[in-house]
Design a protein around this nucleic acid. Structure first.
Lengths: 236, 236
DNA sequence: CGATTGCTTGATACCTCTCAACCCAGGTGG
DNA sequence: CCACCTGGGTTGAGAGGTATCAAGCAATCG
């Protein structure tokens, strides 16, 4: 059934102090980050987006790219049958919304209250022409996004629900490395739309993993890894 | 069940006259192609690869990128459970095998007898530093690959077998635009591994489409579109 | 306190996988 | 020339996994 997208009431929200420190990118080499970091012009404008609000829609003129300062953003597509496919979750430090064409190819929405910096595209393009580090950064961003999308394809094709959920948990766990317990920022619906499952199957699978003592759901959004090895094996 | 990869006998094959003319890229704007075209150094070395032979394997040092002159190439990954996920089919004019990291992230194999040009990576990197058109081309290549991978994810998540097969047929039909009938270069197994289905389901779905007079299978590899509109709607 | 939202759980249906048999074309060798 | 073999493809019967529909629970919010 069509994902009931809340596109919630437009309540403004109290802004947490903006954190400008970057955490590491899951798949990036340190050099890439550094280049990219130095290259992006700091005078971007800060903006705050409330949970479930749209940042941009598929097809909108792609006027800027964004970096996540705090919170989580999802990029997704909506199918004609009402289904939603989430392409990626973007966490603190991630960049999203860079386009070559005229319009955004995906929609972007706030998973939770977010703080972002937007970099106008025009300024960027001028900069990139003269700034080697920046154009290198853009290239490596594109390649990294490609790799991520390919890995996602791998995840979606011919894998059982447990395998998908296990893979998702491990992927998400990397965002808080070393921690025994991770906090999910997203709803079950988000997870389902990311994995190509239904909300019920996600819920059932998590329950099943808890019954088999692989994870523990302290709350519905707090997951403790009791048997990481088993989780890794499920990912086969 | 594990995809039985033939990795066929090492027979050399009679080489068709190399065609250096490029056909158009499915999703590329003309400008992109032109830039890229001009920028790539023509003194690449031509090579021929027989059907089902490996061009490179996942993890191999990424020493070169390739352009398809004739034939079809598949890039894919092999999972620990023996399954194969095909990421993309590359046709005449397509470039594949460009990497940022040290190794290839996917394997590449010849779907049919192929003619390729390989461009050594080192030469390319030197060139890109001084050649704006080339680095632009690389960037747009990366972005296009990313878009393709994302579309593929969309295809794999939560779509019925008919929808997948219909989408595949339409995608493949774009390679020979305007033609009423298209020739499939790949086996049912290839299609299955691309769509995240089994060979039987692919076969059954094609039969079903033929029974409902949407397509006609002149031979198993020759498909005639009898009702393109219906096909488009199935893709919902 | 009732309403809403996110989540869980159950029963059932449906779709695709699995296993198996069979077909067909092409090649090979007696 | 024909028998045989092989690889690719089709088709059938049954099993299994996930979707669907439905009900209920808990926390949050007004």
């Amino acid at each position: 059934m069509p994902t009931q997208l809340a596109t919630s009431t437009g309540r403004a929200f109290a802004v947490a102090p903006a954190v400008f420190a970057r955490t590491s990118w899951p798949n990036a080499t340190t050099e890439d980050q550094t280049d990219w970091d130095r290259a992006l012009p700091t005078p971007g404008s800060v903006l705050h987006v409330a949970r479930d609000r749209e940042i941009y829609a598929e097809g909108d003129p792609a006027g800027a790219l964004f970096r996540v300062v705090a919170g989580v953003v999802r990029t997704c597509k909506f199918l004609s049958d009402g289904h939603r496919q989430i392409d990626a979750f973007h966490v603190t430090g991630d960049v999203f919304g860079f386009e070559i064409g005229a319009g955004y190819r995906l929609s972007a929405e706030a998973v939770c209250d977010c703080t972002l910096i937007s970099y106008p595209r025009r300024g960027l393009e001028n900069l990139a022409a003269s700034n080697d580090a920046l154009s290198q950064g853009l290239l490596s961003y594109a390649m990294r996004s490609m790799a991520r999308a390919q890995d996602h394809s791998l995840l979606l094709g011919r894998r059982s629900a447990v395998a998908k959920v296990a893979a998702f948990l491990m992927e998400w766990a990397r965002h808080s490395p070393g921690a025994q317990t991770v906090a999910l920022a997203m709803t079950r619906q988000d997870i389902a739309d990311y994995l190509g499952l239904t909300i019920e199957t996600v819920s059932r699978t998590l329950s099943q993993l808890e019954r088999s003592a692989v994870i523990e759901l302290s709350t519905t959004r707090q997951i403790r890894f009791r048997d990481p090895t088993a989780l890794r094996q499920l990912n086969s």
